[in-house]
């Protein structure tokens, strides 16, 4: 990917937490790039650190952080060097926003949804309430919520509608990047598909880029331009969506792909034996080695990130 088309570029992003049992290496040297009008999927199973990655990107950190460093370039500017006030004024919810996990259940129950969507506008752009509500109404049209829902309360809306409202809220300040943390995991199949239709349309119409964090491989293909696979706090493969869904490279990606039950193909799914390592005390070398059918002696050393025709794989198999 050429650098001038890069909107968001992440290098060595690291986030550790202090716990009673020791430091948890939730995000460990994460890297990926995201272009304009693109969507990158961060694919990983529960406990791989993908939600911590969202927190690290938006600097929504809990108190027990023990290490937080790396480089995050947003339109060429390293936002990790900003102090909190600059970050708040220039990045969070201005150029980068978030649809948090279970966002539809985190709407304020005593505020009309229109006002909630308008709120970030009032805070970050200092616009008048009326203008902000107009903007909110526009956003409602974009995400497919009837405009007369502006005056309703969250409990009067269905789950799908509430999720759309949460998406509208993340978009109202016209950010360049929206991070979606499991945006459809609690929704029904039809609603889920509808939300993905909306997201696809938004990507085109609003020229927004998405970071989609999910564990659901099948639905992630609905939006993905690029795929980054996360395992035990690390990125193991960053690939182009077409090549990834056709044939992933990293053994973990392959096995993950093979575990997906398919509706339209007669292919028996396979599972991965064993469990991911604890982030408290991850093994040295490749973190997947213990479960990997292709492991060999080298795997006890930290694998390099190898570039295979533009696909980055963190695996000894591809290094010569």
């Amino acid at each position: 990917m050429s650098t001038d088309n890069t909107l968001l570029s992440i290098r060595d992003l690291t986030l550790y937490f202090n716990t009673q049992k020791g430091p948890v290496q939730a995000v460990d040297g994460v890297f990926f790039d995201l272009g304009y009008k693109e969507a990158v999927v961060i694919l990983g199973e529960s406990g791989c650190g993908k939600s911590s990655l969202a927190k690290a990107l938006l600097r929504l950190l809990p108190r027990n952080v023990s290490r937080y460093d790396g480089k995050v370039f947003l339109e060429g500017e390293n936002i990790m060097e900003m102090d909190e006030e600059q970050y708040r004024q220039n990045v969070r919810w201005v150029r980068m926003s978030l649809v948090p996990q279970a966002a539809m259940n985190s709407l304020n129950p005593v505020l009309k949804v229109g006002e909630q969507v308008a709120e970030p506008m009032i805070i970050h752009h200092g616009v008048k309430k009326e203008e902000a509500l107009n903007q909110a109404a526009k956003m409602f049209q974009h995400v497919g919520v009837p405009v007369d829902f502006l005056d309703r309360y969250a409990f009067e809306l269905s789950g799908g509608m509430r999720q759309r409202v949460a998406i509208a809220m993340s978009l109202v300040t016209a950010p360049a990047v929206v991070i979606l943390d499991e945006p459809t995991s609690a929704l029904d199949v039809l609603t889920q598909a509808n939300i993905f239709n909306v997201l696809k349309r938004l990507k085109k119409e609003l020229e927004v880029s998405f970071v989609l964090i999910t564990h659901d491989i099948a639905t992630s293909s609905e939006l993905a331009d690029r795929v980054a696979v996360m395992y035990a706090g690390q990125i193991v493969e960053v690939s182009d969506a077409h090549r990834f869904f056709h044939e992933p490279l990293h053994p973990y990606s392959r096995m993950l792909m093979a575990s997906v039950p398919r509706l339209r193909a007669n292919q028996e799914p396979e599972y991965i034996t064993g469990q991911p390592p604890s982030l408290l005390n991850p093994p040295t070398g490749c973190r997947f080695a213990a479960r990997c059918p292709k492991r060999f002696a080298k795997c006890s050393e930290e694998p390099p990130v190898v570039n295979v025709d533009g696909i980055q794989v963190k695996c000894w198999l591809y290094s010569n």
């Binding site: 799908g160 598909a193 509706l263 193909a265």
Partner: peptide, 24 residues
């Protein structure tokens, strides 16, 4: 409709909108 809404992992999914019944 249920089948149409169910995805298989396929990069082509991102290129098209799904035909779905409206409403809830």
């Amino acid at each position: 409709a249920l089948m149409d809404a169910t995805s298989d992992p396929d990069a082509d999914n991102a290129l098209r909108y799904r035909e779905l019944p409206g409403g809830e």
